[in-house]
């Protein structure tokens, strides 16, 4: 990165809801001067073929993320809790609907 480049437009992450009933899903990023422009650009860039019914944009700076290096320790607490899964419990075959 050279010094004379001015970061005039910040980066935004874009999330699109494909249709009613589904979650918004991350689709990519874009540059825009503000949130309003980011929404317009997101519509032009990520929904040219009816891919969405709703869009969220979030400043990339505002996203906090877990670190891949700490992945094992971070997710370890759920690793040894097999009793959280229904298959942990044995029920006689003769018992219906459970």
């Amino acid at each position: 990165m050279t010094k004379e480049i001015k970061h005039e437009w910040p980066l935004f992450e874009v999330f699109v809801r494909a249709k009613r009933g589904l979650n918004h899903v991350h689709v990519g990023s874009l540059r825009a001067a503000d949130h309003e422009m980011a929404l317009h650009h997101a519509r032009d860039l990520y929904t040219r073929r009816n891919e969405g019914v709703s869009i969220w944009v979030v400043r990339s700076d505002d996203v906090a993320a877990s670190s891949p290096q700490d992945k094992d320790a971070f997710f370890a607490p759920s690793g040894d809790k097999v009793y959280r899964h229904p298959t942990y419990y044995s029920i006689p075959d003769s018992v219906p609907h459970i």
Binding site: M1, I5, H7, L11, G28, S29, L30, R31, L45, R48
Partner: peptide, 18 residues
Amino acid sequence: GHGLYLYSAAETLGADRA
């Protein structure tokens, strides 16, 4: 649009599209 999807992918690696 394709150019912009790709600049977006490049930015995830620390490149700057400007």
